[in-house]
């Protein structure tokens, strides 16, 4: 799948995953899955539990390694040995549980793994003030509010913790931000805030992949749906070309009603 959509923006896709398979022991989590996404595109990745959405995205974020298949960034094949490589390639993931360390401060969490260090070769001192200043500037630029960048994350509310996770994912020139259920467990104002964030990223040319159970979020800010079931891609649909009932039907049945042959061909 995907070739037709790939050229939608008249350019090589920003990210392309091709023929990805992954098994955990005897469980086949993904079989021959592919997807591609262009700059500034917002993709809604939907499907039932255990459809393989999170596994696919964790592979893209470097947290899992695929058994087979390739990933391309800007047309170049890449191999991610760990999350560090993926972040280096501009791919950030906002995990459902935000993946923050509760005992560390907001600044320490934002810079975790890419701390600003002093220049002395043997005594590379953490530049704490500089990082605090940059974290403050980051929140100001994002229009997100946290009480203090030097408070430990455990003292923040759920919404504030998400703001920290968003700041961390978007503050370092990301090309693609993956959001895993960003609107689950949030109130209406917080959901609006997340949608604003996605729209802003889109305007900046950042691609966003949205894993969500809430189809209305994808209809509100997304460009395209990809439906998954049992480790396969069922279908892809432009947001303007479909409606919620069709998506729900595909999520439940795992078949694309617009194809004559019932179950969908898993091969791209």
């Amino acid at each position: 799948m995907g070739a037709g959509f790939r050229d939608r923006r008249m350019s090589a896709p920003l990210i392309r995953m091709h023929d990805i398979s992954k098994a955990f022991g005897a469980v086949r989590a993904l079989s021959h899955v592919g997807l591609s996404i262009g700059e500034g595109e917002v993709l809604g990745l939907v499907g039932d539990n255990a459809a393989g959405k999170s596994t696919l995205m964790k592979i893209l974020a470097g947290a899992h390694q695929p058994d087979s298949g390739t990933i391309e960034v800007g047309g170049q094949a890449v191999v991610f040995h760990g999350p560090h490589d993926a972040r280096g390639a501009g791919i950030e993931m906002i995990y459902q549980d935000y993946a923050l360390v509760p005992a560390l401060t907001v600044t320490q969490n934002i810079f975790l793994g890419r701390e600003v260090l002093g220049a002395w070769p043997l005594l590379r001192v953490l530049q704490r003030r500089q990082m605090d200043e940059r974290a403050k500037a980051l929140f100001a630029a994002l229009g997100l509010r946290v009480p203090s960048v030097s408070s430990p994350v455990r003292e923040l509310s759920g919404g504030q913790q998400q703001a920290v996770a968003i700041a961390r994912a978007t503050g370092f020139d990301a090309k693609l931000v993956i959001m895993d259920e960003p609107t689950a467990n949030l109130g209406a104002p917080a959901i609006a805030k997340v949608r604003d964030t996605i729209t802003r990223l889109k305007l900046q040319g950042v691609a966003v992949i949205l894993i969500s159970h809430r189809l209305e979020d994808v209809f509100a800010v997304g460009d395209r749906f990809i439906v998954m079931k049992h480790g396969h891609v069922v279908a892809a649909r432009e947001v303007g070309d479909t409606h919620a009932d069709e998506i729900v039907q595909m999520i439940v049945t795992g078949a694309d009603p617009r194809r004559s042959a019932a179950p969908a061909d898993p091969k791209p």
Partner: peptide
């Protein structure tokens, strides 16, 4: 960095892992 990373690993190892 080592001290901070030790605290991060102890604070929540899974978060430290996905942050690379």
């Amino acid at each position: 960095q080592l001290g901070l990373h030790a605290l991060a690993v102890g604070g929540r190892e899974e978060a430290a892992r996905v942050m690379g």
